[in-house]
Design a binder for these strands. Structure first.
Lengths: 153, 153
DNA sequence: GAAGAATACTTTATACCTCAACTGACTCGT
DNA sequence: ACGAGTCAGTTGAGGTATAAAGTATTCTTC
């Protein structure tokens, strides 16, 4: 067994371990946040994700902008926005400039709610991540970016 | 604005940024792996996750062990294992010691497949994570553990 | 300026996923 | 024993998810 091969498999194992731990950590946080959302706001996690994204873009977003921001499929967004509109939390408007597309934005009711929820949500995350120092967070962010920014579709 | 408050909100923002980046990174990797699984093995990601876990425990696992390992709900595992058994990749056996429970393990056919897939999967992850050095991986793993190991239910 | 390619989005089929309620089985105190 | 409480697992309803196919619209290119 050459040292080269040993090192290569050693890195590979560590990367796999990282991946499995990322998965568990994300699910752990998602479960925590999901439960709080349900208990305190009767809202699902995907619905909140969409609302939070819309809240960051008061000018409105297209369906494809949403699916790209959230890294989910196109058809997925259709259903979630449908429910949000039905609940009066979001609105859709046809675009004159491109009749295939439409703009989605938070409704007045949704905006008032999100003004509050965004603050509360940040506090939740702050609590869940309380053991993570600012330098650790910065370091981890940079690693997360490295993972995503690999050349690909 | 006191410096204390400034620092507190600064850390909170960085933690939120970390959370959002973790989410995107995980979805990115999941999408990549999901596509390869579908194209090369006609298997879904959750099914692979279950099979890989079972493959690591040749003696077999109970349903609740599986859901705990994968950080998913109990009812979820029921459906996935159902499909795996239907496809002949896994087997279930009633436990004499506890007639409420049952053991799940990979079938002979599933074992042969997983012997190969586990290696290929590690290569995929190694490729996707190729920009992550071993020290970075180790550091990130420790941060992921910190996130999970906070006291909670 | 019309055929063809590309785009934005929806729809359908299938699989996942949680939660809450439920069934059947174990445990334990009395 | 035996009933209250607990535990392993399933079920059903509702809500995500993806992939693939389909629709309408816009762009492109000659």
């Amino acid at each position: 067994m050459t040292p080269l091969r040993t090192n290569a498999t050693s890195v590979a194992k560590e990367r796999l371990r990282l991946w499995l731990n990322m998965l568990k950590a994300v699910r752990h946080v998602e479960n925590d946040v999901r439960e709080r959302l349900r208990a305190q706001y009767q809202m699902t996690l995907p619905q909140f994700d969409v609302m939070a994204t819309l809240h960051n873009h008061p000018e409105g977003l297209r369906m494809s902008d949403l699916s790209q921001q959230l890294v989910v499929s196109n058809g997925n967004v259709t259903g979630i926005v449908e429910r949000l509109v039905a609940d009066g939390l979001a609105e859709r408007e046809n675009l004159e400039s491109d009749r295939r597309a439409s703009l989605v934005r938070v409704s007045e009711k949704g905006n008032a709610l999100m003004d509050e929820m965004v603050v509360v949500h940040r506090e939740w995350i702050d609590e869940i991540f309380q053991d993570i120092s600012e330098p650790d967070a910065a370091r981890a962010i940079s690693i997360m970016l490295d993972i995503r920014q690999r050349r690909c579709a």
